[in-house]
Amino acid sequence: MIKTKLKRAQEEMIGFALIIVLVAVILLIFLGFSLNNPNKEAVESFETASFVSSLLQHNTDCASNLEAHLSVQDLIFDCEKDETCINGERAGEKACKVLEETITNVLQASWPIGEDWPLRGYKMTIQIGEDEDIKDLLPPFIDGSTEGTFKGTPQSFPKDIEIIFEVYS
């Protein structure tokens, strides 16, 4: 009699334990789903495209006979022709030198990199030419780490200019 009661109690305990385990597993699955939120990207692709677009419109201290402040885009064309700034604060300096300095400064001010920032590095390449004649107009602008996932796509501009800007996060 006592043995039968003991067995029944044991069976009930096992059943109860099974229910608790089952419910715990279900709760864990729900928790897993609720905590698994997609993380926000540090940089979106449109940001790199917009940056390149605004960089090209930015005025430099280099001037030509016609324009008091040449834009970065104009300076790229002048650099390709190995021209010199005629007027302005940088008169007499090579267009390529002014272009290189301007882009370096703009990149440093716009894309801060380091432990306190979400970005690990960036790389900008300005290429000119068609198909097999493509060459780098200036050495690539690189800062920080350029390994891992990145955002950014090549953008084509008139006169066979292509700017490739990649931001690593």
């Binding site: 449109f46 917009s50 940056f51 677009s53 605004s54 324009e67 402040h69 001010a109």
Partner: peptide, 24 residues
């Protein structure tokens, strides 16, 4: 939420008016 833009205005340097476009 932010995005890069070119912030332009007309400037006068004493002799002529020119377009001043900054990165913003």
């Amino acid at each position: 939420s932010s995005n890069f833009i070119s912030l332009c205005r007309k400037e006068f340097d004493g002799t002529e008016t020119y377009d001043q476009c900054d990165i913003a």
